[in-house]
Design a protein around this nucleic acid. Structure first.
Lengths: 150, 150
DNA sequence: CCTCATAATTTCAAGTTTAAAACTTTAATG
DNA sequence: CATTAAAGTTTTAAACTTGAAATTATGAGG
């Protein structure tokens, strides 16, 4: 209360950001450990496979890096490794020979689906204290935070 | 509405987590770019310096890695580079010769303080759409999310 | 057809990050 | 005192990540 008065909004936004970062890192660390121990994989691999699973027709490398908010060099490296293991396939696009379509192979689909439910369950456990109202509020706040125009 | 009925809480938690991750990564990317362009430094360096600036008496390497939620090997590497540049100092601790106290040097303090206000301002801009009520709600939700006991 | 700006991807070097192993020191226990 | 378990740190290898440069392809305008 008095805190609200002493503390300018700017400092409160900074603190909120630090808290957000903290919760996100804790959760990421937990899920990384979960994927490593239970499914012998890593977070970036899982993220790439999840993105490709959602769009079964595939994604170009640029679409992939934009979707995951990582650099294109990064996407190349992770897809390289997944391709080497036969989980992802690069297909040249006839219409535009600059681009490549990355898709999950059959093995990739099988592997991802064998992890997806357990992963969702782990996230569910991780955030089990948040009820429907919390989730609604959180969504509203996060959407507001990244809204485009002013 | 019907969505709420069709969608079990588990799926909503998963979506909330993906949104949280997305907002955090967007913000991290923005701040990384900001630090690179305006202050010729990186996010991990900034994080380490911020942690050491808060506790002027210094932190052991373990305390540092726990505070930043990174591995101890990671802390070692970042501190190594900062030490090489004269921004951080490692001091052996007499009481326990296993531990090292990492502190900011004078130059480190000067450099951090020259960045801190601009960084806070950037975060303030980034989250300017969130008002006091949003920040309160967000804090409550994040605290609830990571609460210890059941 | 040629040129040039742009786009998609990869390559590259440097830095970041993790998990596990190695090393040193401490503390406890017999 | 010797042994052993635990704690703090560093080292190591592999993976991840970025930003910039290089490569290849497209498309527009001369």
């Amino acid at each position: 209360m008095t805190q609200t008065l002493r503390d300018p909004l700017s400092k409160r936004r900074l603190k909120a950001w630090l808290r957000l970062l903290n919760v996100t890192r804790q959760s990421e660390n937990h899920l990384r450990e979960f994927l490593r121990v239970n499914h012998a994989t890593t977070l970036p691999r899982f993220d790439v496979m999840a993105a490709l699973w959602r769009r079964r027709e595939g994604l170009t490398m640029s679409e992939l890096s934009r979707a995951l908010l990582v650099s294109n060099g990064n996407a190349t490296a992770v897809v390289d490794r997944l391709e080497r293991e036969g989980l992802v396939l690069r297909t040249p696009v006839e219409k535009d020979r600059r681009t490549v379509q990355a898709t999950l192979t059959e093995a990739g689909i099988r592997q991802f689906e064998s992890m997806a439910a357990a992963h969702e369950n782990e996230v569910n456990t991780l955030f089990h204290r948040l009820d429907a109202e919390d989730l609604d509020q959180l969504r509203a706040i996060l959407q507001k935070a990244v809204a485009e125009p002013e």
